[in-house]
Amino acid sequence: MLLKVNNIDTYYGLSHILQGVSLEVKEKEIVTLVGRNGAGKTTTLKSILGLAQVRAGSIEFDGQDISRLPTHQVILRGISYVPEERRIIPGLSVRENIKLALLKSHNREREEEMIERVAQYFPVLKERLNQDGTSLSGGEQQMLAIARALVTDPKVMLIDEPTEGLMPLLVESIAEIVLEINRSGVTVLLVEQNIEMALSISHRAYVIDEGRIQTSGLSQDILADEEIQRRYLSV
């Protein structure tokens, strides 16, 4: 098991958000976490990253407990993060955004090589290297956010709503990219609002609601189960 979240309780201040969430991600899998607005999907990812306060339970990565580690050390162990709303850093060029991700990685000295690799996935980024990252279109910013997470050769990528606000055509190409990244050997934990897309590209899925995992199984089974869709996923 590459990543194992074990019965965690997560709080924002006094609000108790996650109540005993458990999930597992095996090497080379795409696992998706689906649920309504406010269900606790982002909070689950933030808990893994040490960005939200986990008060009980444990999180194991590669056999070691990472639940007490500060965020930067979690990242250095081989987890990378594509956050909700992209969070491209304002005032930095596309190149600088990528460089920032490389600074603490073993690819630090291979900036040009990494930019070439990014260009294979996203040719458009290479044309915009010196442009301010936040001046890119929504789709391009999403590509940059994924590129930034890719260049460190992570073992696992945590991807939060990569298709939010994108046109259908782009949604499809982002889905394709996630598949491709996974085929290159990167394990993926994906959070999505676009349930059909997420379930169709992932191997397994967890359904979260009100801070608890309600059910889990093979993605295709969950996609086929109308009862689950009605109870936990319809708006």
Binding site: Y81, I89, K104
Partner: peptide, 11 residues
């Protein structure tokens, strides 16, 4: 600009 994201890049 975004200290949280910088931490999430391993810094």
């Amino acid at each position: 600009r975004d200290p949280l994201m910088v931490r999430a890049l391993g810094i």
